[in-house]
Structure formats: C-alpha cells, structure tokens
C-alpha cells in the first residue's frame, strides 16, 4: 500500500524557526528519507513553505475564486508531505514515528493513498 505521511506543526513554530533550526529539521527528515530510499520505499517527500504564503482556489458563480491563505485557517498547518510504500499501517506508523514532527512538536497524520 501507499501511505501519505503529512507533517503538521504550529504556524508560530514555522514562523519563529531560525535558519539553524531549519537546517537541523531538514537534516532530521533527510535521515528518514535516506532510510526510506535505501529500502526502495520512498515515493515522494519534501517540506512545504508556510501556509502564510498559501493561495486557495474555490468554485465561484462564473469562474473560480482565488483567495490569499490556506483552505482551513487553524493554529496548526501542513508543513511536509511524504508518500511511502508500506505493507500495512504498522509499518507506516513506524516510519512516521521516526519523523521529527512525531518526536519534538507538531504531529504526523497517516493517510492511505488511493480512493
């Protein structure tokens, strides 16, 4: 199966992060991504820019309406997306548990890919 591992964190945490902390975070993800790639399980993985710079398109009467900001305004926002191959939820949980957002602050949501 394929699973999407979606990393979330506080918007304040994203905005307050120093360059040094940013490279530390990326190094943490780099380790997990490398392990996944070595086992041939990494489909895609990268971080996202802050939802502060997000743009949303929604249906309008004549044409789609473009607005500034994310779909859901909340305290926490999506900050990274991984798609991995795993045999079952337990394996996906194991990979998710190694991600920095499952270890320090924030959280990782696991969603099976494919409708």
């Amino acid at each position: 199966m394929q699973y999407a591992l979606l990393a979330y964190e506080d918007i304040d945490a994203t905005e307050a992060r120093t360059d040094e902390e940013q490279s530390e975070l990326l190094a943490g993800y780099g380790k997990v991504a490398q392990a996944l790639a070595e086992q041939g399980k990494l489909v895609f993985g990268d971080g996202l820019r802050s939802s502060v710079v997000a743009t949303t398109v929604r249906p309008g009467t004549d044409q789609a309406i473009v607005t500034d900001g994310p779909i859901t305004e909340g305290r926490e926002h999506l900050i990274g997306v991984f798609v991995i191959e795993a045999t079952d939820l337990d394996e996906a949980l194991n990979w998710a548990g190694q991600m920095p957002h499952a270890q320090t602050s924030g959280g990782v949501e696991i969603r099976p890919v494919g409708a």
Binding site: Y3, D88, D90, I110
Partner: peptide, 10 residues
C-alpha cells in the same frame, strides 16, 4: 480495511 491494519500480533 481502508487504513491497512493487518491481522497480526506485534
């Protein structure tokens, strides 16, 4: 079923 939880012991 949908989340892929296997029938197995840890």
């Amino acid at each position: 079923r949908e989340a892929g939880i296997s029938l197995r012991s840890p």
